[in-house]
Design a protein around this nucleic acid. Structure first.
Lengths: 254, 254
DNA sequence: CCACTGCGGTCGACATTGTCGACCGCCTGT
DNA sequence: ACAGGCGGTCGACAATGTCGACCGCAGTGG
C-alpha cells in the first residue's frame, strides 16, 4: 500500500493551514481553501477536535490549533537525542561566548530551532524554540546547506528571498559560499537576515559523520564582529562546542 | 456523519503512544500495542512520516515523533489569545512577586502550561511550557477544578495519586477545599505536589465569566509561606494579575 | 556456516469507511 | 422579514483504508 492515507494527508493539510493563518478559520474557509466538500472537512475537523489537535471557539464556531499539539511538541523535544546531548554544551557555549546560542535541525525548507539559550545577563528575550529560520541567510542554515545534500536540495535554485542588502539571493553565490564553509569548517552570517545581527555556526554530525544539525551563536554585530569579520575567538568556541556535541552523540552508541 | 474518522483516531493514538514511551518504538511494537494489523500501522506511520509528524531512525527503523509537531505546537502558542494577552501581566507578576509564574489551561486530565516566566535572577531553570501538571494537587489545577465543571468532571471521584504527605487524595476533601477556594477566590498548594514548593493560583475568565485558565506563582515554601500559610501580599499580587488578564481578555472583544 | 526467528515493508482482495453534495436550522446584516 | 451566509447533518455510493499472508533482510544461536 505505497500510497499515503488520504484522510491523514488532508488532516495534516488542515492543521498546517490553521497554523499558517494567524486568525481562526471557519469550516467553509477550510473547505474551500483545500478544495474539500464541507462534509468531509467537517468530519476531519471533528475528529481532530476530539483528539485535541484542534479547538473550536464555541462562540464563533471557528477553528484553531489545539493544545495536544503543544504537548506532543514538547514530547518531541524530550525524546530528541541531539537536543538532550547538546543541552549542557550549549549552556557552556553561551556562557563562554556571552551570546545567545541556537541549536537547529533541518526541517522542510528551513532550520527548526530545537534549543535556545538566552544571552547571559541580557534583557528579557522571547524563546524561539519551535520557530523556523531561513536556510540561505543564517549561519545555521548555511552550515546545513553546505554539508547536507538534502538541505541543498530543499533550497532549490533561487533566487532566494532578500531580507537585507547583504542577503545572498543567487544560487551561484550561495554555492561558492558553501564551498568556503566546507573548506574552513564554519559558517557566518553578518546582517544577512536581520540588520545588526551576526551569527557564527558549525556542523554537528553523528557517529557516521552524517550531518544532523548545527549550533550557532548570534548577537549584535558590534560584539560579534571586529573590522568587518567575526571574531576568531568566537569561531573557536562555536567549533569546539560543535565538536563536543558530535563526540557526545557518537559516544551514546556504545 | 457523527462518527470519528477511524484512521485519524488511530493516527492520534499512535502519536500519543510515541509521546508516552521515552524510547523509540518499532513498527511491530506499535501494531501490537494498539491491536492493529502491521500493514495498517505501517500505512499510518508512513503517512505521518511524509507529513513530518513522525520520524524514522534510518538505522534501526524505529519511529519517534517528528519535528512538525514542534512547529505546530509553537503555532498554537502564537495564536493562543489568553497567552498573548497574559504575557506582559505575567512578566509584571514575576517581577513584583520575585517568583516563578505559570499560566495554565485545562487539557484532558491535567493543566497544560502555556506560559512560564522564570524567577528573576534565579539559577538556570528548564522551561516547562508544554508540560502538564496534575489537577488535584497544584494551585493551577485546584483553581480550575473549583471553577470549571469540566475540570471537576475530568478529575473523577478518586482516590487521586499521592505525591507527598500533604496531597489530597479523597474527592470529599478536595471538594471541600474547592468550596473554600470559591469562597475566598484563590487557591494554594503547599507541598502537595513537590516537597519544598508552594504555589498560589487564581482564576482567569473571559468576558462571559467562563473559566479559561489560571495563573500562579510558585516558589520555595520558605519564601512563599509564613507561619504555615501563604503570604497575603503574594495572594494579592496573584489575584490582581488574574483580574488584569481577565479584564484584558474582555476588552479584546470590543 | 547455516537454518531460524524476528524485524520492517509489500501486496492484493475485500468490505468497511470516508467521501460527496444536497439539505437543515440558525444567526446576522440589510 | 428576508436573503445569504454560517456550521452542521444525512444517506447513498464507491473509493478507500484495512487485513493477513507474504517477502527479503539482519541478527542469532546452534
Amino acid at each position: 500500500m505505497p500510497g499515503p492515507i488520504q484522510s491523514l494527508s488532508r488532516a495534516a493539510a488542515i492543521m498546517r493551514l490553521l497554523a499558517g493563518g494567524e486568525r481562526r478559520l471557519g469550516l467553509s474557509e477550510v473547505a474551500t481553501a483545500l478544495d474539500l466538500a464541507k462534509g468531509t472537512a467537517h468530519g476531519i475537523l471533528r475528529t481532530l477536535q476530539q483528539e485535541g489537535f484542534v479547538e473550536q471557539d464555541p462562540e464563533s464556531g471557528k477553528y484553531q490549533l489545539g493544545a495536544e499539539l503543544l504537548r506532543l511538541g514538547q514530547s518531541y523535544l524530550d525524546v530528541h537525542e541531539l537536543r538532550a546531548r547538546a543541552l549542557v554544551w550549549a549552556d557552556d557555549l553561551a556562557r563562554a561566548a556571552g551570546e545567545t546560542v541556537y541549536l537547529g535541525v533541518l526541517h522542510q525548507q528551513g532550520v527548526l530551532i530545537v534549543h535556545h539559550v538566552f544571552r547571559p545577563d541580557d534583557t528579557r528575550q522571547v524563546l524561539e524554540v519551535g520557530s523556523m529560520q531561513p536556510l540561505h541567510s543564517t549561519a545555521l542554515g548555511k552550515v546545513l546547506v553546505a554539508y547536507d545534500p538534502v538541505a541543498r536540495g530543499e533550497l532549490g535554485d533561487g533566487p532566494y528571498e532578500s531580507y537585507t542588502l547583504r542577503t545572498l539571493t543567487e544560487a551561484s553565490d550561495l554555492d561558492a559560499e558553501c564551498a568556503l564553509i566546507r573548506e574552513r569548517g564554519w559558517a557566518d552570517s553578518i546582517e544577512e537576515t536581520w540588520e545588526g545581527v551576526a551569527s557564527i555556526g558549525a556542523l554537528i554530525q553523528d557517529r557516521r559523520r552524517n550531518p544532523v544539525g548545527a549550533v550557532c551563536i548570534s548577537g549584535a554585530v558590534e560584539r560579534v564582529c571586529e573590522d568587518g569579520f567575526v571574531k576568531p575567538s568566537l569561531v573557536a568556541s562555536v567549533r569546539s562546542a560543535a565538536r563536543a556535541i558530535s563526540r557526545d552523540l557518537g559516544a551514546g552508541r556504545f
